[in-house]
Design a protein around this nucleic acid. Structure first.
Lengths: 146, 146
DNA sequence: TACCTCCCCGCAACACTGTTGCATTTACCC
DNA sequence: GGGTAAATGCAACAGTGTTGCGGGGAGGTA
């Protein structure tokens, strides 16, 4: 399903700004910060419109969002082929390149809370160094020690 | 163990600012934001010093920190009676009052990541409405319907 | 087609968290 | 008590995210 169809199905006006923002998220399958989305949009896109659109897409359930280790929101769209989407999975954040990935394979585990508490959702971020950055680091070390 | 002893044991200069900040965290057992810590300190405490001190306490392993649902760091000190402290447990964040609690009872669950990835840590936040806020809400509704 | 209304967009301004550089002051060791 | 390295306070900055407001465009109605 493309951006236009998704917006149409939710009865949201498919304006150029919304279409292009959603297209960016549909293309990149990992959670992007507002800054990363902006970098993939034609220059001149208003900052506030981008924020508002991301929030709209989130509230409509079209994308999910997760906080990275810097405290900024990242937004991600998966098509409906993934059960439990949007959002019901842990995420991995690379400390080196800052990239984040959805760990689609596993669902968020159950955690017991104090009785009488109303649970609305949960977030889980695993952080460390991704494979690409580990490889780069190893290569650098190798070159340096020659 | 009091603040002075903790700092002494880690060979950190026990300045008044550090002692009072650590005392606040030792007293309140739930993760506090810089703003909440500042509110519990005598007025006039410098913002930057507070940030630097919180970061120092975290890096020294005296406190742990966790991101709340607004993307701000919260710092928390537990004494060493808790196994896996500091930090190896999920947290609960109340959407209404903003308060956060440590779910000391359970450890962070294992999650499988892509092979070749280096995992350094993980964060888990369960969000919803805490018991106190639920009670208040119920009372309000009750009063309104009379 | 003309009009009208609602919603989207862009701009300006703001609040807040967190960081950096630098000069001054302080705690600790001798 | 003096010297030194570290801690503090101040000013300034960067970045994220929000709010208010006016203009303009899309879509519906007559």
């Amino acid at each position: 399903m493309n951006a236009w169809e998704i917006l149409e199905r939710k009865s949201i006006r498919a304006t150029p700004a919304r279409k292009s923002i959603l297209e960016v998220l549909l293309k990149e399958r990992c959670p992007l910060s507002y800054r990363e989305v902006a970098a993939r949009l034609p220059e001149g896109q208003d900052r506030v419109t981008l924020y508002r659109t991301l929030l709209l897409l989130f509230k409509e359930g079209i994308v999910h969002r997760v906080l990275d280790m810097k405290g900024t929101w990242r937004f991600c769209a998966h098509d409906s082929g993934h059960p439990g989407c949007p959002g019901n999975h842990p995420h991995f954040a690379c400390r080196v390149c800052g990239r984040m990935e959805c760990l689609i394979g596993s669902n968020l585990p159950f955690v017991e809370v104090e009785p009488g508490t109303e649970v609305e959702g949960k977030h889980m971020v695993i952080y460390g160094v991704c494979r690409d950055c580990l490889v780069k680091r190893t290569k650098k070390r190798g070159a340096g020690s020659l």
